[in-house]
């Protein structure tokens, strides 16, 4: 258990939090607009591949990132078009996009690189790691907080941005109103679909960065199925955080802790390896149960006190 006090351990918690945090933010902002987006998983996967391919062929990180973000928004809008305008079942549309993404990325990968497993034959750009001035000189915290990938810092900024947007601006207020009650907001003169599409755009951007962090940040190439359920996890995180980005950050940290623990346990303990891999999921479900039970109790007590 020595690793609990080593800065490396805490550093990797922050690193493994990043993709889930971005996915959680994506889930937060759409759920506040009343959308249940199962397609975050697929969007991340497609963007991870797009970023790698475009940056490999244009030799430009910026173009790759822009293409990834653009595709992220496009995929979210495809979901929005079919779910909101064509009135499709939201879950089914999400499943459709995920199916197309898991198979489609393999197809594109195999067509472009000839390998079904990874894009390591291509030379693609990666996002740089950044040493933060001043902070990096602080003894213990410096080595935890500094030296992360630029997307990690971007994700922290996005957390603040989403919170500010949702709770401090008129736009955010309208988005939340739409999520609370569509009919009321419509009668109050809010353009419901516009609000939903705005939140979907944010969702696309966040998922894109989440995906690109995996293929152009923590790893240097795209491997098939590399999102590995993080998009689905974000939905659970969203349930824990009830759509609040700050709480979303906290719950992603919990996940990051569970995942890093898993890695370290696999290294240092003699337990069955495969069973440990289930640990983050079980941990998340337990946290989810606790949070929800507490919330239900608070609600019950409030009702009781109102009756008295």
């Amino acid at each position: 258990m020595n690793y609990l006090v080593s800065p490396n351990f805490w550093f990797s918690i922050l690193a493994s939090t990043t993709p889930v945090l971005l996915a959680t933010l994506a889930a937060n902002i759409v759920s506040k607009a009343g959308i249940f987006n199962l397609a975050i998983e697929g969007t991340m996967l497609i963007c991870a591949l797009t970023g790698v391919l475009v940056s490999a062929f244009t030799k430009s990180l910026v173009l790759g990132a822009l293409a990834g973000v653009f595709i992220g928004i496009a995929i979210s809008y495809i979901l929005g078009y079919f779910a909101l305008i064509m009135k499709g079942a939201m879950n089914a549309c999400g499943v459709a996009i995920n199916l197309a993404a898991t198979g489609g990325t393999v197809f594109v990968l195999a067509t472009v690189t000839g390998s079904k497993a990874s894009s390591s034959s291509l030379v693609s750009s990666t996002f740089p790691n950044i040493a933060v001035p001043f902070i990096k000189n602080i003894p213990f915290a410096g080595s935890i907080l500094s030296g992360h990938n630029i997307i990690t810092y971007l994700a922290w900024f996005f957390t603040f941005l989403t919170w500010f947007l949702l709770y401090k601006t008129k736009l955010g207020q309208e988005i939340r109103a739409v999520g609370e009650n569509e009919e009321t907001s419509r009668s109050a003169g809010i353009n419901v679909n516009l609000m939903k599409f705005i939140s979907l755009a944010f969702c696309g951007v966040y998922s894109a960065f989440g995906g690109m962090y995996l293929s152009m940040g923590s790893l240097k190439s795209f491997t098939a199925g590399m999102v590995a359920g993080r998009g689905y996890l974000s939905l659970a995180m969203n349930s824990i955080s009830q759509g609040n980005p700050i709480l979303g950050f906290a719950s992603s940290l919990i996940y990051g802790f569970a995942e890093t623990m898993t890695v370290y346990l696999e290294l240092y303990s003699k337990l069955n390896l495969k069973l440990i891999s289930a640990f983050p999921y079980i941990f998340i479900i337990v946290v989810l149960l606790l949070v929800q039970t507490i919330k239900n109790n608070i609600k019950k007590n409030r009702k009781k006190s109102l009756q008295n």
Binding site: A83, K87, C93, A96, A100, A101
Partner: peptide, 10 residues
């Protein structure tokens, strides 16, 4: 498969 589901679901 993806396109079929999208169309049938809408």
């Amino acid at each position: 498969q993806g396109i079929v589901i999208l169309l049938v679901a809408s």
